[in-house]
Simulated assay, not measured.
Amino acid sequence: MKRVLVVGASAAGLAAAETLRREGFDGTLTLVGDEPAAPYDRPPLSKQILSGEWSPTRLPLRAPADLDALDLDLRLGAAATGLDLAERAVRLADGAAVPYDGLIVATGVRPRRLPGRGAHVLRTLDDALALRGRLEPGRRLAVVGAGFLGSEAAAVARGLGCEVTLLEPAPVPLAHALGEQVGRVLSRAHLEHGVDLRTGVTVTEAGKGGVRLADGGSVEADEVLVAVGSLPNTEWLVGSGLTVADGLVCDAYCAAAPDVYAAGDVARWHNPLFGTSMRIEHRTNAAEQGMAAARNLLHPEARKPFAPVPYFWSDQYDMKVQAYGYLRGHDGVAVVEGDLDERRFLAAYRTGDRLTGVLTVGLPPKAIRPWRQAIAAGAGWHESDLLPAPA
């Protein structure tokens, strides 16, 4: 293999490129990114960048010298527009056709949008800076979507003195992922910090001046942030012959086709640890999967399934939320440590008869580590000595 092409220059793509070099690949390594900026970290966008706590100069994932040391054919500001599997070439928006022997797709996701003009989204550094420039004391911000991104932005805006209205179609925010008990705990934090949280409402249009609701009502605002989820960047793969279904579909090795692998937010792969197909939009998974895809591409004779215990975190107000495992589709939740009312607790998640997830709020990192190990070991719900014995 003489030429490897990595499409996507964020956390997953950079991790793949670094791993290829570390594992001994000395051929042509092309890294393509649609943004003009060098690879940078995204989680701080809705936290430290939006609050003004950090300068954008803290975001780059690697120093220029470290990128230079990778000896990359770096193509920034050039989005991929098509893939020819037979010719083994990727077409770019600038008209170039980049050949490859091995390909890693790491094109990430983009924000879902709503009808209307003038609303903000939050995915890129430019998005974060544009919104940050409008958040001043007394200004009214409407946030559509009370998931993690919307909740983090609402918390930051309240800290900056904005009047915040948080709109969510579900009766309890995040209940579909974390359970109703935990969702209510996180919701109370918004209310206690003065956010006007409105649940069970559907927004049909979002733009300059506010939002329109499905019931005919409206919410006036100086600025609107739409945070209603993401769409995988797979349009450029249409007609390529690869299978696309809410992400680029891969096997347990992150392979989508011979010599074609995927990593990060765009990849939908079969995780054998949980026995299901999943697509994870978390920073830690992006880096881990980038490394795994690169190793499997470079060493096909020694491929290993990618079977991680996913990890994510969120900072909202004074709460540090951390979770391991696959919480979606759970059958039960048990609070086994701490107190929900004090927002300091550990909740364990059951799917079938297995321990499949754990979430903490307000606890130190060491509290969650043994649970991660139990999930990785495939512990049964009643087999883990971390859980209280059944009555």
Rank of each mutant, 00 (worst) to 15 (best):
R184V: 13
I104T: 06
G264E: 02
T165G: 09
S51A: 15
R279F: 13
D68Y: 04
P232D: 14
L31I: 09
V195P: 06
A292E: 09
G95Y: 05
Q181F: 10
P43F: 04
A119W: 09
E87Q: 15
K366R: 15
E53T: 14
L186R: 13
L297Q: 04
A293V: 05
L61F: 10
A177G: 04
R3L: 02
R140K: 14
V309N: 02
D94Y: 10
E337D: 15
Q48I: 03
L387G: 12
V156W: 03
V335M: 14
H270Y: 15
R21P: 03
G13H: 06
R139N: 03
A175C: 09
R303Q: 14
R88I: 06
W236A: 08
A154D: 08
G357I: 13
P173K: 05
S218W: 11
D259S: 14
G145W: 09
L70I: 06
P370G: 10
A302V: 07
K208C: 04
E152H: 11
A170N: 06
A256E: 03
N233W: 05
D215H: 12
R369F: 09
L83C: 08
A263W: 08
G133I: 11
D71A: 15
T30L: 07
A379C: 13
S51I: 03
A267I: 05
Y324P: 01
L85H: 11
L70K: 12
V6T: 01
L131R: 07
G264I: 00
G13E: 01
L72N: 05
A106H: 01
P171M: 05
G210M: 08
L59H: 00
V358C: 14
V195K: 04
T165P: 09
Q48M: 02
A69F: 07
G217I: 04
L297R: 03
R123V: 01
P258G: 07
V361E: 01
R3S: 12
P99E: 00
L242P: 10
I49L: 14
L386V: 12
A37R: 15
E223D: 15
L31Y: 04
P36L: 03
R62K: 08
K2S: 15
D215G: 10
T351G: 15
R58L: 11
G138R: 05
E235C: 13
V361L: 12
L67M: 11
D41Q: 11
P272L: 12
G362H: 05
L5C: 07
L61K: 00
P365G: 13
L363P: 12
L141F: 01
G82I: 09
S10E: 13
Y311E: 05
G95C: 10
R123K: 15
V226R: 00
P99C: 07
L355I: 11
L45Q: 07
P305T: 04
D222A: 14
L197P: 08
